[in-house]
Design a protein around this nucleic acid. Sequence first.
DNA 1: GTGAGGATGTCATAACATATCAAGAAATGA
DNA 2: TCATTTCTTGATATGTTATGACATCCTCAC
Lengths: 156, 156
Amino acid sequence: MATNSFEDHDHSKCVNDVMTAVEAHCAIHKLQFTPIRRRVLEILLQDHRALGAYDILDILRSEGHSAQPPVAYRALDFLVKNGFAHKIERLNAFVACSHPGEEHTPAFMICRSCESITEAHREPEQGQLGEAARNAGFRIERTVVEAEGLCPKCQD
Amino acid sequence: MATNSFEDHDHSKCVNDVMTAVEAHCAIHKLQFTPIRRRVLEILLQDHRALGAYDILDILRSEGHSAQPPVAYRALDFLVKNGFAHKIERLNAFVACSHPGEEHTPAFMICRSCESITEAHREPEQGQLGEAARNAGFRIERTVVEAEGLCPKCQD
DNA sequence: GTGAGGATGTCATAACATATCAAGAAATGA
DNA sequence: TCATTTCTTGATATGTTATGACATCCTCAC
């Protein structure tokens, strides 16, 4: 398996692995993985890119669903709350999680050229931010860590 | 001087220092520090809090300015572009910079209770994000690093 | 004083997100 | 099985954040 989504990889496996993991997680935790929620996650998984809620709505509409804004936002809330997707604050957009269901503190690398996104993992208490927080007496509950730049392929 | 804005400090000195530094920077770089831009920065400096563009607009209006949205966004663009203010992506809001004009890579700690914000500084190439970027072959150009949690005072 | 570029005034609208309430479906327990 | 509760969805409306476009005006260099 590719260590990050900038590398060439078998994307259908990538999608299947995530869907399988999410299904299992929902079964265990008695979460309702309804058709809309499933479809929105599938849409996010199509690419390692972030999609806005209205991009998702457009796709849902083209498939015949009703698709007023709350439809997308509710599905996204469900996916984000349960760790199946993340919001990219810099872009006001959403991306499928690479490690669904597991507790983790993600960091993102966003290519400004091809818009691909790869997810890395951090330890919130370590590193420069953790140190700054300790110095300030600040108790971290959530972090947003996003880097913008150029992915390997777009540096040429 | 306080090492971070969570501590008690002489805030009028805080404001004066920043305004003086910004004035100097604008003089040197031939930037037009116009009344609107100055006023918006003063508004941001009133507290170590982030304000939305429309919060700023409300204040400008209450002072008799015209104040259509572009008025605030243009002033904020100027302040951000020149390093006098930062956008807090998590909040879609803006905060005055503690170290105006200097090249730096900020990280923010946002108190979810009192909404105060303090700015720390990072080295983008170091730490966990820098390491993840090197591993992925990603070239970082900008970073968004924001922690949400509780400041020392609000932990009681 | 004229021209070029930057700054502002103003209107309009795009893009992102949520409140509310009604109706329907699924899980729960008697 | 039926009633109850809870979660999910449908639908309308609205709130919030941000930008496009164009006219006007100011400033500075020449």
